[in-house]
Design a protein around this nucleic acid. Structure first.
Lengths: 206, 206
DNA sequence: TGCATCTGACAACGGTTCATGTCAATAGGA
DNA sequence: TCCTATTGACATGAACCGTTGTCAGATGCA
């Protein structure tokens, strides 16, 4: 009967805790890559593990099922993307229109850098499960808030759900990106931004 | 060695040809129902067959694989929907704005009648396969054309691909519908139509 | 009525995936 | 150096699905 005096041991310079966290990060990165290449529904746990350089045993150490990784990687991507946008806006000068232009440019440039991820994390994950849908909806709502804030609009009062028009604008901005990606980036980015702006500026009318 | 004098025989009042066509129809209807209830990715061939009241053997008589049924049922739904819209527009009176209002009302009313189908056939099927994506893209393009035509805009010249702005408007109109559905139809339909109109009218600016 | 076509229920096969388990080899601590 | 936690490669089992095949019974025709 081992008294387990050293239940957790340092290994390669890291504690057990650190190694776990490190592996989790590896899975997140691998998931973003694999989902982007194959799409979520075609990606297998095995493929993600191979890309992460780890085995299934560690997969189930960090995630209880495959879908949990999807949600986690989606949120990681969105956190990163929103951070980029906030940063761009903070550096923007000029009025609301110019600030929106800056933000949209940052947005479409980011999607251009990761074209495959865009489709997966903006469209394909829809309907995978209620938990995933909820995460997606929350993220779109955040994006809508960011647009409205950048335009200098006051926050929507106690509305639990963003206005339909705002949801429509967000959907339109996204569809523009998807179409642009599907066309192989045949239009210069300023045209893409211009189309997005036309939609966003609808929020200012009235 | 049978000389097969009556290779195909009438059965229950129908010829072999007619029975085949009838079964195909049954599968299409069943698919629309089952996909709407369970989503495409969770729906099985078996479930569709059960809903159709037929067996797998007949499934593979009409469709070579599962995905073929998806494309066929998608196109059937879209043909029906576009027909409804054309009909509504033909009966509309007034200027472009009024005609768009009539069309959008018909659109959102139709989606309200088949809420589950909407999500499946507008979002979930994206990325299932290149063939499916192509059918979806074509259908969205048609919808964009219809909007533009209803607004009295001239057709886009030789552009192989619709403008980004037009794609954005279509995406926005759809997202409005999805949000409305997800909210449990909490807004009256005229508000939904109003939001959609604000987006569509962007196409008239400039 | 007798016979061949047609139908529907169900079995069977092959493949895939998730999730868990096994085990030898490696690396760190005493 | 010895022992054990840790790792990674691989095996295993259970479940599911698409697709094809089997077969008895129902149906229509001569």
């Amino acid at each position: 009967m081992p008294s387990s005096p050293v239940a957790h041991r340092r290994y390669r310079g890291s504690s057990a805790e650190e190694r776990r966290a490190q592996r989790r990060e590896q899975f997140l990165e691998a998931a973003i890559q694999v989902y982007g290449e194959q799409g979520y529904r075609n990606a297998t746990v095995k493929a993600v593990c191979e890309a992460a350089g780890l085995t299934e045993r560690y997969f189930y150490e960090s995630f209880s099922h495959s879908e949990e990784l999807l949600v986690a990687s989606f949120q990681a991507v969105m956190r990163f993307l929103m951070g980029e946008l906030e940063k761009a806006i903070a550096e923007a000068t000029g009025g609301p229109a110019e600030r929106i232009r800056t933000m949209l440019t940052a947005y479409y440039e980011a999607l251009q850098r990761y074209p495959r991820s865009a489709r997966v994390f903006l469209v394909e994950i829809s309907g995978v499960s209620p938990a995933v849908d909820q995460a997606l909806e929350a993220s779109l709502g955040e994006f809508g808030d960011l647009i409205a804030r950048t335009l200098g609009l006051r926050e929507e009062g106690g509305a639990a759900r963003p206005s339909l028009l705002r949801a429509g604008v967000v959907g339109g901005v996204i569809h523009i990106a998807l179409n642009w990606i599907a066309s192989g980036y045949s239009q210069p980015i300023h045209e893409v931004v211009g189309a997005g702006m036309r939609l966003c500026l609808v929020l200012r009318e009235r």
